[in-house]
């Protein structure tokens, strides 16, 4: 008689599946899902991690405090301004570089690698280095752009208007290569025969760029915009490295303010949780808009 396999002690396929999935699920729940919901709960309380008092339910009070405080609105305005300018510049420069690098020329491989270097550095290191380079007395930036006199040279990190631009320049320097990389992937995926067909159809180069190149890379450009927007809205490490939010609060992005609320002064965990939720909702809303646009581009 043949022994039926079920008689033997062995793992069923179902159990094997569970064995593989469970560790991930447990980690996900412990590290992501539980904190997500716990912080949601905390955002409705007046809890502080350094006090020994249990969280007390205060309803929407934290949200009200944030949304009615003009200082918080200023952080949102700074973050928004920063996001729009950096993403726009990165898209222009990144896509422009991709169009140049796409043509193979002598040394184009090594140039591509060099352009990608800033992206591979740690943001905090980048921030600290640039702070040195922006320094009014011994920084190299002013020297390079022609201001040799310390008394008349712009104080990049001391002036409220220039400080934001200083961070924008660093962010653009650091992340345009990322846009370039995605654009290059998009450009090289356009089949040659489309350009051949367009040449036969007597299209000029600007017409080809507008009607073929741009629409064909558009999905990848939108993905680049999406990634860079999310990152810009969360901008924290570069700001901390370069200005620390200053001068005053001129470059204090929402994330920097969030950090201050959560881990400095009062350690106001409840309020900072509420702020974190507001940022999350904004990011999800904007991402959804982009993704909808992306799907529209793909389906037509």
């Amino acid at each position: 008689m043949i022994k039926s396999p079920s008689k033997r002690r062995q793992l069923s396929d179902r159990n094997i599946i569970l064995l593989f999935i469970l560790p991930t699920m447990i980690i996900l729940v412990l590290m992501n899902i539980y904190p997500l919901f716990y912080s949601l709960y905390l955002s409705f309380t007046d809890y502080s991690v350094i006090s020994s008092v249990a969280p007390k339910w205060v309803g929407f009070q934290n949200y009200q405090t944030i949304l009615s405080d003009t200082r918080f609105w200023k952080h949102f305005a700074i973050t928004g301004q920063y996001t729009i300018i950096t993403v726009a510049l990165q898209m222009l420069i990144g896509f422009g570089l991709a169009l140049l690098i796409k043509e193979k020329f002598w040394g184009s491989g090594i140039i591509t690698t060099l352009i990608l270097v800033p992206m591979m550095l740690s943001p905090v290191v980048v921030g600290l280095f640039w702070r040195l380079m922006y320094h009014p007395s011994y920084g190299i930036v002013n020297y390079l752009i022609g201001f040799r006199n310390i008394n008349t040279a712009p104080e990049w990190l001391g002036s409220p208007t220039l400080a934001l631009w200083a961070i924008i320049i660093v962010d653009v320097w650091m992340w345009s290569p990322f846009v370039m990389l995605l654009s290059l992937a998009g450009l090289s995926a356009i089949p040659d025969y489309l350009y051949e067909a367009a040449a036969i159809d007597r299209a000029g180069s600007w017409f080809i760029f507008r009607r073929i190149t741009l629409p064909q890379v558009m999905p990848l450009l939108l993905i680049a915009v999406l990634f860079r927007t999310i990152e810009a809205l969360k901008q924290f490490d570069l700001v901390m490295g370069i200005t620390g939010g200053g001068p005053g609060d001129a470059t204090e992005t929402v994330s920097v303010r969030l950090y201050r609320e959560a881990f400095q002064g009062q350690f106001d965990t409840g309020l900072s949780s509420a702020l974190a939720y507001i940022v999350l909702i904004v990011i999800i809303a904007i991402s959804n808009l982009y993704i909808r646009q992306l799907n529209k581009v793909r389906e037509g």
């Binding site: 089949p191 025969y193 489309l194 051949e196 067909a197 009607r211 073929i212 629409p215 064909q216 037509g300």
Partner: peptide
């Protein structure tokens, strides 16, 4: 292989 403009 036709070489049609796939996005149009």
């Amino acid at each position: 292989f036709f070489a049609l403009y796939s996005h149009m």
